[in-house]
Design a protein around this nucleic acid. Structure first.
Length: 219
DNA sequence: AAAACGATCATCT
DNA sequence: GATGATCGTTTTA
C-alpha cells in the first residue's frame, strides 16, 4: 500500500476538479481511521456534494460562516466534522480557502477492524454497522469534534488515493441528497448524491435492489 | 417493506 | 425558542 506517497496529493486531489466530480471519484476508495493503533474502515459507497455559497442545502449557503462550519472555508483536504443532535458527520472541504464547498461521506462498506467497529456500535453488525454517516462515526468510536479543522494528513483519517486500491463500481447512481430542506425546488432536486448501485451498505438501500456482488466490478 | 415519529442538543434567531 | 446534511423503534399494509 502506497498511502504515504499519496498523502502529499490531498491538496491537489480536493481542488483540481469540481466538487461533484471529486465526490463521484471518491466512490470505491478506501477510507481509513486509525484507532488505538488499529486500522478501521472500508470502501466509500455513498457520498454527497455540497456546492458552497450558492447551494441552498449547504451549511455555507449565502456565505454563512461561524465556528460551527469554519471547516468548509478551509483549503481542500481539511476535515469538517459537524454535530447535530447527539450525532456526528464527516466531511472533507473542497476547493481553495474561502470557497466553502465540501463532501459528506455518507456510508462505507466495512472491511478493516470489523470486530472493533461492531463493539463501538454496541453489537450492531451487518448492514447496520456503517450505512449512514453518524453510524460510521460511531463505528470509529468518535464522540467529539476533536479532528474538525485538521488537514487529512495531520489526522488519524486517511483516504487512499492510489488507483490500484480503488474498487470500481459497475454503476454509480446520482440522486437527490437525503434529509435536506425541500423548500428550494432547484437545489433540493440536484443530483449530488452518488452511490454504488446495489451495494447493501448504502443508506436506505432496498432489499430487493441489493446485489450479490455488492455492485463492484470484477478485477 | 415502507412510513411515521420521538429522541435530544449545539447552534443560531 | 426553533431548528436540523440523523437514528432506531414502532406502526401500518
Amino acid at each position: 500500500m502506497k498511502i504515504n506517497e499519496d498523502k502529499m496529493n490531498y491538496s491537489e486531489y480536493f481542488t483540481n476538479r469540481s466538487t461533484d466530480e471529486i465526490t463521484k471519484d471518491l466512490i470505491g476508495r478506501p477510507l481509513i481511521f486509525i484507532s488505538h493503533g488499529k486500522k478501521l474502515g472500508g470502501y466509500i459507497v455513498e457520498a454527497e456534494a455540497y456546492m458552497g455559497k450558492k447551494d441552498r442545502a449547504a451549511h455555507s449557503y449565502g456565505g454563512r460562516r461561524s465556528p460551527a462550519n469554519e471547516g468548509l472555508y478551509r483549503k481542500g483536504g481539511t476535515i469538517y466534522i459537524y454535530s447535530q443532535r447527539q450525532y456526528f458527520f464527516f466531511d472533507v472541504a473542497c476547493q481553495e480557502e474561502n470557497e466553502p464547498q465540501g463532501i459528506l461521506i455518507r456510508a462505507i462498506e466495512p472491511v478493516w477492524g470489523i470486530d472493533e467497529m461492531t463493539q463501538n456500535r454496541n453489537g450492531k453488525n451487518g448492514v447496520l454497522l456503517t450505512n449512514g454517516t453518524a453510524k460510521m462515526m460511531q463505528a470509529f468510536g468518535i464522540h467529539s469534534r476533536n479532528w474538525d479543522l485538521h488537514f487529512l494528513s495531520d489526522s488519524p483519517f486517511a483516504i487512499d488515493l492510489n488507483d490500484e486500491n480503488k474498487k470500481v463500481a459497475q454503476k454509480i447512481i446520482a440522486s437527490a441528497r437525503i434529509g435536506i430542506n425541500q423548500s428550494d425546488p432547484i437545489w433540493a432536486k440536484k443530483k449530488l448524491r452518488y452511490y454504488v448501485a446495489g451495494n447493501p451498505y448504502v443508506s436506505n438501500m432496498k432489499k430487493r435492489e441489493m446485489r450479490e456482488d455488492h455492485g463492484w466490478q470484477r478485477r
